[in-house]
């Protein structure tokens, strides 16, 4: 897997920042506008997949490997569970225990933005890890009839 031509690499360099910024925007303002953790996470994974496809797997191996995606995946799931367990301070599992100063603002959702961040990290790492596993882990049958990726 060598990566693509110079045009694809340059366009990816220009575009990838906007894709990641938009996905972070979707995750953070999920409780005010359409968006949320799921779609933001999948879009984050799409950005990483674009990087893997255009640059080749050797160049991005320090940034996204199967090990790092597994670690991010587990930490996202663990953060979501911790947010759920912290609700016991207010008396219940998944209780919305933060103060909510007013509506229609970034910090008005209580635990919902925090849970969105955790879900976004989890889903993004999951999908990027699935793609990397399907792409990078090649078996002994490396020479498929036309299987040169």
């Amino acid at each position: 897997m060598k990566g693509m031509t110079i045009i694809v690499k340059e366009v990816t360099t220009l575009v990838i920042g906007f894709i990641l910024l938009y996905s972070i925007n979707l995750i953070l303002t999920g409780h005010l506008t359409p968006g949320g953790g799921f779609v933001g996470g999948v879009m984050l994974a799409c950005g990483f997949i674009l990087m893997v496809l255009s640059y080749g797997k050797e160049k991005v191996n320090s940034l996204i490997s199967d090990r790092s995606t597994t670690v991010w995946d587990c930490s996202g799931a663990f953060a979501f569970l911790v947010i759920a367990l912290l609700g016991y301070f207010a008396g219940d599992f998944f209780a919305n225990f933060f103060a909510q100063p007013g509506n229609f603002r970034l910090f008005s959702g209580g635990t919902i933005p925090l849970a969105n961040i955790a879900i976004g990290i989890k889903v993004g790492a999951c999908m990027a890890g699935a793609f990397i596993a399907l792409t990078l882990f090649r078996g002994p049958a490396e020479s498929f009839p036309g299987g040169k990726l």
């Binding site: 409780h31 005010l32 968006g35 949320g36 979501f80 959702g109 209580g110 635990t111 849970a115 989890k122």
Partner: peptide, 24 residues
């Protein structure tokens, strides 16, 4: 009750958060 203006997120992450846990 939740402070979220997007009711889908309010249902998903506050009222029915067990669904989301199972989905994860």
């Amino acid at each position: 009750k939740t402070g979220a203006a997007n009711y889908v997120m309010a249902v998903l992450l506050d009222f029915r958060a067990y669904d989301t846990l199972g989905e994860a």
